[in-house]
């Protein structure tokens, strides 16, 4: 197999600025998405994901300009998520220069939206983001459900069945976040990642919980993920993307070095 596994740094963008502090000593403006994206590109990031967390819908237009500016200068794949609710939103992001658009909550409330979007722009442009949380008890078989609102609201939807349904509806990729692990730095939920990856025919991006380089490797080796997404370990320059890729390659994973 010569297809490389991917490392994807994720940037939260609020009103056009990168937040959750990116700390590079040698970067001019750590809040500027273009500067940060360029830096990640130079380090060898395989893709970049922007998550728009702008609260006010009046300010939603700013993310479009962010995507335009980044796409003018950074020539690797770009994914944009956050607040994507209509086919028009999808089109606007793609026209601005995004290669893929991640749909999350809107898919839960209106699964047909995923079908409409993939019909219009093609499966390869549509990522369905899934936020899952373990709901099984200690002595029960493992089970995860879809949660919305940052993991606060249960939907009753089984995560594996949901992932399969989204692929049936045309999703070209699944971005899987464990809400139990997100922000914990104790590693991906590997059984969840593996269960979803084995259940669907499309690539799966593992997300939520990365604290060490071994976590990234485990996501691929044990979780069977096709790509791994992380934020804080790269933003705070704990590790560079190059170091992460070299580590994974040393563990026997096919990487673009």
């Amino acid at each position: 197999m010569s297809l490389a596994k991917r490392i994807i740094p994720c940037l939260d963008v609020d009103n056009g600025r990168v937040v959750k502090g990116v700390q590079f000593v040698d970067i001019r403006d750590a809040g500027n998405p273009v500067d940060v994206a360029r830096r990640y590109d130079e380090e060898g990031a395989d893709e970049i994901t922007f998550l728009d967390i702008t609260a006010s819908s009046d300010d939603r237009e700013t993310i479009v300009h962010v995507v335009e500016e980044v796409a003018n200068e950074v020539f690797i794949p770009l994914t944009v998520g956050g607040g994507i609710r209509t086919v028009d939103d999808v089109r606007r992001m793609l026209n601005a220069g995004a290669d893929k658009v991640a749909i999350n909550t809107a898919a839960v409330f209106n699964p047909e939206f995923v079908r409409q979007a993939t019909d219009k722009v093609g499966s390869q442009c549509i990522v369905v983001a899934i936020d899952a949380k373990k709901v099984s008890m200690e002595n029960e078989p493992l089970r995860w459900e879809i949660f919305t609102h940052g993991g606060r609201k249960a939907t009753g939807l089984d995560a594996i069945a949901w992932a399969k349904k989204m692929v049936d509806y045309g999703a070209g990729e699944i971005l899987l976040t464990s809400m139990d692990r997100d922000g914990t730095k104790i590693g991906f939920d590997l059984p969840l990642t593996r269960a979803i990856s084995e259940a669907v025919s499309v690539p799966v991006i593992a997300s939520g919980g990365v604290g060490t380089l071994e976590h990234l490797a485990a996501g691929v080796i044990d979780g069977l993920a096709d790509a791994v997404l992380a934020a804080s370990i790269f933003h705070f320059a704990e590790y560079s993307i190059q170091e992460a890729k070299q580590y994974m390659a040393d563990r026997g994973i096919e990487m673009r070095l």
Binding site: L3, R6, Q124, G172, E173, V202, P203, D226, R256
Partner: peptide
């Protein structure tokens, strides 16, 4: 996985 997606 299909699509064939990524760096090859």
């Amino acid at each position: 996985k299909i699509p064939h997606m990524g760096w090859n």
